[in-house]
């Protein structure tokens, strides 16, 4: 079943996050005022991406990376006309014209750059076709989406979006209970490490910013990146009842307490219900 939607409702970052966490295989088709593109994923990893009308073949990429001269490209093209990129790469490596790692790094760079270009698209539609991989004969790579998300998010500048995703700076962060990726596999900036070192259920995001002398914009950007990469989570603690205790100017407690203002602790707000009643509910609903 294809997943469809609009990018303004469900952005690129969220899509990549979904593909990554669900370890999806398939192709994401994007149509935006900026162009059309498709991204291919295998088991949650980005293996190919291309902008419609701007696809480059392997030889062009190797020439742009100064791994082949224009003359070499011309000769190879004339000798291997109609051959798929994968066959050309195999021939070049076997003949010793180029190293396998150069092919891999050129493709990695190309696919990543296409991806980061697409990252800025905020208008348009998307469609994810599970299982479909239109990459016959193409060179593919395998790029972990955590790093793509981190880098793409670094390039995302929209303040409004950040405010939407991290609306409240007065909540703490905690490390994800089941981090999807070990920390060692992720490239963090110095600023991100500084924030990571303060992540603790006792520290609100605002407090972390103050401790690191960061602006709201900076801390929102970093918190957003860490959240999207699945490294940290908000601590959604149940609201604590405010207990008003009258005291003197030094803060010493007075004798009089405003008992009406003393709310029940949150844990006591769960209704006291016996198991037998729940079993009655279950039996009755089964009968309906």
């Amino acid at each position: 079943m294809a997943l469809k939607g609009r990018l303004k409702d469900f952005g690129i970052t969220q899509l990549l996050n979904l593909v990554n966490l669900a370890r999806k295989t398939g192709t994401l088709y994007l149509e935006s005022p900026e162009g059309k593109a498709f991204l291919c994923f295998r088991q949650g990893k980005l293996i190919y991406s291309a902008l419609r009308g701007e696809e480059k073949n392997l030889l062009t990429l190797l020439q742009e990376a100064s791994k082949l001269t224009p003359n070499q490209v011309q000769i190879i093209e004339s000798n291997m006309a109609g051959k798929a990129d994968r066959d050309i790469a195999m021939m070049l490596v076997q003949a010793g014209h180029i190293k396998q790692r150069d092919v891999a790094s050129s493709m990695h760079q190309y696919v990543s750059d296409q991806m980061y270009h697409i990252f800025s698209w905020q208008e348009g539609t998307f469609r994810f076709e599970p299982g479909s991989l239109p990459i016959q004969g193409k060179m593919t790579v395998s790029i972990a989406l955590e790093n793509v998300i981190m880098e793409g998010s670094r390039r995302l500048k929209e303040w409004e979006r950040l405010q939407d995703e991290v609306p409240d700076l007065d909540v703490p962060l905690k490390f994800a209970e089941r981090p999807t990726t070990p920390l060692r596999d992720i490239n963090l900036t110095v600023e991100e490490w500084r924030v990571i070192s303060f992540v603790n259920p006792q520290n609100t995001i605002r407090r972390i910013a103050q401790s690191n002398n960061m602006s709201e914009f900076q801390i929102r950007k970093i918190a957003y990146r860490l959240l999207q990469a699945g490294l940290v989570e908000f601590v959604h603690a149940p609201r604590q009842a405010v207990v008003h205790v009258k005291g003197d100017a030094l803060g010493r407690k007075g004798k009089e307490q405003d008992k009406k203002a003393v709310a029940k602790p949150v844990a006591q707000r769960r209704p006291a219900v016996k198991r037998g009643l729940i079993h009655k509910l279950i039996d009755r609903i089964r009968e309906l």
Binding site: K4, K8, F10, H236, R270
Partner: peptide, 21 residues
Amino acid sequence: RPETFREARRILNTFKNYSPV
């Protein structure tokens, strides 16, 4: 309707905070 997912997440978190049920 994926355009409602963000709102659903907000509502879910709001209700979680009302009561630990």
